[in-house]
């Protein structure tokens, strides 16, 4: 990799790191991060394919309350860099992508620890901001807010830069040294890992009322002709119908006996 590519990759990594905490623009999502790294390194198509596969794994990864999810930022950036190194070392693109997906998981755990360190380091930073508030200094608060964000960016940018300087033949050798049972097993495991993300989502939303909709989604999806957009439309329609019926059902119940004309007729007999 030449110096400009490395520089661009580090910038992408910095953005991903920032977003890992901000969670606004979504630069840390595999779909965006891997595509950008693919773009700046000249392996756009492979980057997009890796992006799609990793995104599926990371769909349900979100920080909610005290629960800590695997870190998407380091996973997507580092595995994209490994993929680029492997491709530059002329390893076949398919096997590089599948091994990059496999290494993403341990990386997401490593990223998690880095996040926790940064969030602890942010405590003295807000104490400095407190000091700024005490003196009425807007500048102090603003500058330390930027420093805190930059620290989160560096969290991903530094490992990314280090990774860029690993010679590509070392990565290639490591990839090729991987026995078939290991990479095949990783691929099989990768197919199941998506379930973890979905399970996290389900635990968050499942109630007695919503379980039937899960069953509906599962069975309707067997119809292969339906695209995701189509499934989304059905989902929205079901939600609207359910909410409307629930509301009218509630009011009809209080409107008492005239709500059921057939029942009234039968009663008259």
């Amino acid at each position: 990799m030449n110096i400009i590519t490395v520089l661009l990759i580090v910038i992408v990594a910095f953005l991903a790191g920032m977003e890992g905490i901000l969670d606004e623009f979504q630069f840390h999502q595999p779909l965006v991060a891997c595509t950008l790294i693919g773009l700046v390194s000249g392996h756009l198509t492979e980057g997009i394919m890796l992006a799609g596969n990793l995104q599926l794994m990371a769909l349900g990864w979100a920080n909610v309350g005290a629960a800590v999810a695997p870190d998407a930022a380091l996973a997507s950036v580092a595995s994209a860099i490994i993929m680029v190194l492997g491709l530059d070392g002329a390893t076949a693109s398919e096997s590089v992508i599948s091994t990059s997906i496999a290494v993403a998981v341990p990386l997401s755990v490593a990223g998690l620890f880095l996040t926790m360190i940064c969030r602890t380091l942010a405590i003295p930073i807000v104490h400095i901001m407190d000091g700024g508030a005490e003196k009425g200094s807007f500048k102090t608060i603003e500058i330390w807010q930027y420093i805190a964000i930059a620290m989160q960016g560096a969290r991903i940018a530094i490992p990314a830069a280090i990774l860029c300087f690993v010679p590509s033949d070392v990565v290639t050798a490591a990839l090729q040294a991987m026995p078939a049972w290991l990479s095949d097993g990783m691929t099989v495991g990768g197919g199941m890992v998506a379930a973890v993300g979905y399970a996290m989502v389900i635990n968050m939303m499942a109630t007695k009322e919503t379980w039937p909709f899960f069953a509906l989604g599962f069975t309707v999806a067997c119809i292969q002709e339906l695209t995701l957009i189509g499934l989304g439309v059905i989902g929205v329609a079901l939600a609207l119908i359910y909410l409307t019926l629930k509301e009218s059902g509630g009011s009809a119940g209080s409107a008492s006996n005239t709500g059921d004309p057939l029942g009234d007729i039968l009663n008259d007999y």
């Binding site: 899960f214 989604g217 069975t219 309707v220 067997c222 079901l238």
Partner: peptide, 9 residues
């Protein structure tokens, strides 16, 4: 829930 059901499948 509907979409997750579909995605699991």
């Amino acid at each position: 829930m509907f979409v997750i059901g579909a995605l699991v499948q």
